[in-house]
Amino acid sequence: MKAPSWFAGPIGGALVVALLAAFVVPGMAGDYGIEFATTLVLWIALVQSWVILSGYTGYVSLGHAAFVGAGAYVFILTWGAVPFWFGLVAAGFTSGLLALIVGGPCLRVRGPYFVILTLGVAEFVKYAVINIEASLGKFGRLMIGTPEPVDIYRMAVGLAAIAFVMALVARYSRFGVGLRAIRENEVAAEMTGIRVRWLKVGAFGLSALVPGVVGALMICRTGYFEPLQMFSPQLSLTIITMCVAGGSDNPWGPLIGALFLNILSELLWDSAPELYTVILGVVLVFVVLRMPEGIYGTAVKRLARRSRKAVPGETTP
């Protein structure tokens, strides 16, 4: 438990970084740089939202793509009919609502059942949208008049900052202690007075808000909505890889994981996308087998051990 005032530091830091990123980077980077930065920042937003449920409670969701896709779908359906900002907010809240609806029944099962169920629900939603679109005679929709890349980038930065603060507050508040207790032992958590169902469903709902907006911004970038692409299970799996690579017990790990994999992708994707994915796979296998707490978690542990050794005379019980 940390005092609430403890949040002031990281939140202020996030604000400063976000402002710098939003207003300094575009001046320095060209179009290509902005595209890369937008991609990176959107991934950061996604991983930060994912840990709120899956990192903290251990209910690993393979369904994040459903929230991205649902947000994108609502955004394109309302495109032109409502103000831009309203569409973004509606995208977020629709995904949050979807999570609240499916969360109740889904979160009754645990472990591998939950993982597979979320994948199934995401695929179900995907095919539902595909079928709806097909019955309307649509196989993809275009948007005209989307914002400039720089503006999308700035919105993405703002969104990532919000996602980070949400993940941070969720981790170090009373809520977060409850979530982690659920992960550690759900039965004991319930017997210790934690409203397990509320917390889980609440975390699921919270974690779905940001991906809805990410979905909206993603289609703004391309000006195109295509369900197979927006609801891709690959997206969910990549989020998991980033979080696992970095470590998913706090907001810092996923941040590092997203940075690491995006830079890797940047170095390799153009020349050899398959090679990139092969390396991604090797990294994932390596991290899970050799450093299960992720890059960040392992680094913290190493540092702690070293500093403990550095103080002579101090005994550890």
Binding site: R174, V177, G178, R183, E184, T192, I194
Partner: peptide
């Protein structure tokens, strides 16, 4: 619990804090 169920990945103090908080 007869078969103990602490929160194994949390510190001793955090385990107790869960009780205090909830």
């Amino acid at each position: 619990f007869q078969i103990v169920k602490p929160f194994p990945g949390m510190t001793v103090a955090e385990n107790v804090a869960v009780g205090v908080l909830y």
